[in-house]
Amino acid sequence: MVTIGDNHHEEAANDRVMFGFWVYLMTDLLMFAVLFAVYAVLQGNSLGGPSGGELFSLHLALAETLILLTSSFTCGLGMIAARMGNKKQVLTWFGVTFILGLSFLGLELREFSSLIHEGHTISSNAFLSSFFTLVGTHGLHITSGLLWMAIVMVFVVRRGLNQHMVRKLAMLSLFWHFLDIVWIFIFTVVYLRAFV
């Protein structure tokens, strides 16, 4: 059996991992930056096809935004509980976050499927290519966030709230807030601007 090193070692490792995760988030942000830039360049290129204003539903996007913002809040509550070592509350709040995230994903998938059903796909034109890619990439991030959340929850139940788990939860919540921020930009750049 291996003993986990002294506190000092553990703290330094914590510090490093969190720093590394921040750097990772920056790289992810840069990837999104490319997708935003591409969307900005191509959004007018619908080649006679319907524009964003004709395709999107502002109500739906607004609902998605509210759901994701709320989930960010509940995720924050979960993190506070984690720092206090309250396992039950952690499970509750992250459970709520998970359900909210899932419903966000559901709404997004509904939007996508109805668009595709009407014949507006990623290969229709450059505008739709960039739309599906930008929003879809965010959706993919949400999906992996949810998967991650589910797994961490399973391990929290099985192993309890040890240092490792708190660190994982901290990274997860960072990730979740990050996705929230990206979504705000998507909401503004993609949906709001389509109706201006």
Partner: peptide, 25 residues
Amino acid sequence: TATLFLMFFDRYFGAHFFTTELGGN
């Protein structure tokens, strides 16, 4: 990474990021 994905979407899913047709640039 992002650019390669876009290129991949063009080639695999028929997207139009960098094509000559349908608004690609």
